[in-house]
Nucleic acid binder design. Structure first.
Lengths: 199, 199
DNA sequence: ACAATTGGTGACCTATCGTTCACTTCTTAT
DNA sequence: ATAAGAAGTGAACGATAGGTCACCAATTGT
């Protein structure tokens, strides 16, 4: 029964680890919530730590496939509105996709204990987004949309506030809604601040 | 022996909790590193959770005394250099004070488990700094140093990148040094971006 | 001077942790 | 049809978790 038990275990592990941390989660609860008895899990993983490592492998692979490669770069926006819209689309996705939300949380919780978690957290929360927008802003400078400046610095100034807002999101939809509004307000402010002078 | 055992316990608890989290720390290790046997701790705290709550009380009180009140506001800078210098002084303090570093870590780790930790984390990482710089930027606008805009938005745009950099600091001094340089570079960039037009 | 309190010890308790193992049940290849 | 392997069970394991208790030594108030 249940061919994909391994995947179900990892999914549930992500859910529990993200809520209570690795040390705060026990395999009894993990297996019970999957409708099996705790010893059954050792047919799929040789230890609790092996589950954690497999989960991290999966998270790293997932990140690489979805955000880490150059072909996942969105097109360079051709207006302020397009920049705002693209940003909102990205944030909306990252805030409402349960898996990404849980990944963010578990990386936050385990970053000081696990070196790989720390590296991935750094990409997730900071360098990844910033690198992406470095390319985007360089493109917008080429097009004469925003004023010439260090695109890396602009990307940093743009993505860290948005990242901070994303971090504040929880399950309550109205709170998430308010945060989305702040993202949009900030995005517009940024555009107004850095747009090229109208000639 | 050792009149201030209670304080020593809290200090060591902060250290261990910040490294391994609340669930990942056991009282045997905590007491052993204080040179006593584990049962001894129950003469000072009635449970592990009581230690955590006392620690949180202490952190909340400390924050209120040092950052939370209006009289702790630094004077409004009267130049771009003064803004950069004041920022560097603040960041330097917050990055090198061991207690603050550990507090930041433990709040990061326990924010999803404890409502009060979450609130304090929010102040520590976001709203506190932003509110402070809202006042500062409003003052700088009054003085005609930076261009008129929403001071809250500027404070948000200024403090969240700095906060993100602070979060990356660890014990390695050269890394911390590099981060301090990035803080300074960002601070200057911000000043150049928002300074009032020279007439 | 002495009873009471405080701070600390070591043995012990129960619960729970991650893990193992003999055994069963189900699926699948031959 | 049947042997082999995969998936799951339930009891048990040793280790360790947080916590209690009787006891002791030092300090303290009167």
């Amino acid at each position: 029964m249940a061919i994909n038990t391994k995947e179900r275990i990892l999914k549930k592990a992500l859910e529990l680890f993200s809520r209570k941390g690795y040390a705060g989660t026990n395999i009894r609860e993990l297996t019970a919530s999957l409708g099996m008895v705790k010893s059954g899990i050792y047919k799929h993983f040789e230890s609790k730590e092996a589950i954690w490592n497999a989960l991290l492998d999966e998270m790293i692979a997932y990140y690489g496939a979805h955000f880490g490669s150059v072909e996942n770069l969105p097109p360079v926006p051709d207006s302020g509105e397009a920049l705002v819209a693209m940003t909102m689309r990205m944030v909306d996705y990252t805030v409402h996709d349960e898996r990404i939300v849980m990944t963010r949380k578990v990386l936050t919780l385990e970053q000081y204990r696990d070196e790989r978690a720390r590296e991935l957290a750094s990409k997730h929360f900071l360098t990844g987004l910033t690198e992406m927008f470095t390319v985007i802003f360089a493109g917008m400078m080429e097009k004469g949309l925003i004023r010439r400046d260090d695109p890396g610095m602009l990307a940093f100034a743009y993505t860290t506030p948005i990242s901070a807002l994303i971090h504040q999101c929880d399950r309550t939809p109205e709170r998430t809604q308010r945060i989305m509004e702040r993202v949009e307000a900030f995005s517009r402010h940024f555009w107004e601040t850095y747009r090229a002078e109208q000639s």
